[in-house]
Design a protein around this nucleic acid. Structure first.
Length: 111
RNA sequence: CCAGAGGGUCGGGCGGCCGCGCCCUCGCGCAAGCGGGGGCGAGGAAAGUCCGGGCUCCACGGAAAGCACGGUGCCGGGUAACGCCCGGCGGGGGCGACCCCAGGGACAGUGCCACAGAAAACAGACCGCCCUGUCUCGACAGGGUAAGGGCGAAACGGUGCGGUAAGAGCGCACCGCGGCCUCGGUAACGAGGGCGGCACGGCAAACCCCACCGGGAGCAAGACCGAAUAGGGAUCGCAUAGGGGGCUGCUUCCGCCUCGCGAUCCGGGUUGGUUGCUGGAGGCCGGGAGCGAUCCCGGCCCUAGAGGAAUGGUCGCCCAUCCGCGCCCCGGAUUCGUCCGGCGCGCGGUGGACAGAACCCGGCUUACAGACCCUCUGGCAUU
RNA sequence: GCGGGUAUAGCUCAAUGGUAGAGCACUAGCCUUCCAAGCUUGUGACGAGGGUUCGAUUCCCUCUACCCGCU
């Protein structure tokens, strides 16, 4: 993933859970500034079994990755971890609406 | 044309823009890397994990024994194997095409058959029927009988005729049942003949018996490389060698290996890379054997290999589908105004089912919008 | 991914193939000035679908949901 690295470790997700949080209709966005001097933007995705079966979960993760590739390099916060948590209804939601919501959430948390 | 049965195939297509994984390759560069080009990239069930295998490790001392445990169960064939498939047989259902069946053994033994009923498996007799006797003349006693009633899921062969005091396989015919013989078939089994006068209720998806099969674990198996740790401490209980533990279902003795054992608590380290990893009981086409499952021969092809997990995101057009409106035609009803059903055309809208590989195969089961093809059955109409 | 297990009343658990039971909870009544406790009633369940059987919560098969173990 160009310019983006993926979050895999459980500890990173737990740390992000204690940082800034912005719920939106299709997802919940968590942002944690690492403050370790590294300016890389990292992305993590969480979609639980409550959301649906494997097809639904994989589809949601793909759309979140597409969102991240499109918006984070420009509007993301440098040196921070971004975690997207899927919510019920996020799969049926219009992609354009998801993109607007992610942009709005990033602007709010950047301040 | 209507209704139905069996089998098979597919399971959206094309194109923009932006992207992902693996492999090959080109250019620049000492290298790390950067940029470009090309190829391939989910399913019929990838699912459930219900069976069978390949593969890997462990075990493979007397003992691949014995005992358990689990599974399968008409016959023949297919297969690497199977609980799968094919072809038969028997039973049941359907007018039929066709569908369904865990379908060995109940004189090896044990057990169960509630309620009802007189009686539930070995004989017996509640209401009855018949004969004899007694008397207070419609009851009692003795005997015979099991046809009828009643109960039940099931009642000791069934129906009819004869027979009898009433009855009874008591006798006869047919059916059922059990031996025997002959014939057909590899067999399950079937057909025919003759005998027996009925003896043998049901449940083994109850225990069980018989036959056959099964060593255990599973790619988080296993192999290699690298890093780190150096087999720690405390408390309590038991034991201190004629003892304890282990040797992969269990048992007994012998044998072998090993040594203090067990519980609780504290502290520390590792959670990396490569491989296994996709060429296989493989796919497609053609020919042959066979009723078929399947097998044989020849040619061509290589067709996902990810690793918190790629194969996508978002638009446009088209084709199925469904809905609404309008037009034409056909059939039916009509209170002649119209209404209902169907085919076709046009416009507008809707817009893809079940579902995502995780070592790999063969099956089974379950989920699934819709489309297409082949064969067959019954009915109606016409020639 | 692989391997096991469970499902019975609102909750925790029982029950040889023959009417599904106990405790807590809930409802109503009695008792009490009232509440609690106590006593007497009542409501309420075999996860779903097939099969074997005269008859299934139980036996067999297939689904569904949940739980546990293995890196």
């Amino acid at each position: 993933m160009s310019g983006l690295t993926t979050l895999t470790r459980r500890a990173d997700f737990l740390a992000a859970n204690g940082a800034m949080r912005k719920p939106m209709p299709g997802f919940v966005l968590l942002v944690r500034k690492r403050d370790d001097g590294d300016l890389a933007i990292r992305l993590g995705i969480t979609v639980t079994k409550k959301i649906g079966n494997a097809v639904v979960r994989n589809r949601m993760k793909r759309r979140f990755r597409a969102l991240g590739r499109e918006l984070l390099p420009e509007h993301g916060i440098a040196g921070a971890d971004h975690v997207l948590i899927g919510r019920a209804g996020g799969v049926e939601r219009d992609y354009q609406a998801l993109r607007d919501e992610l942009g709005a959430a990033l602007r709010k948390l950047a301040r």
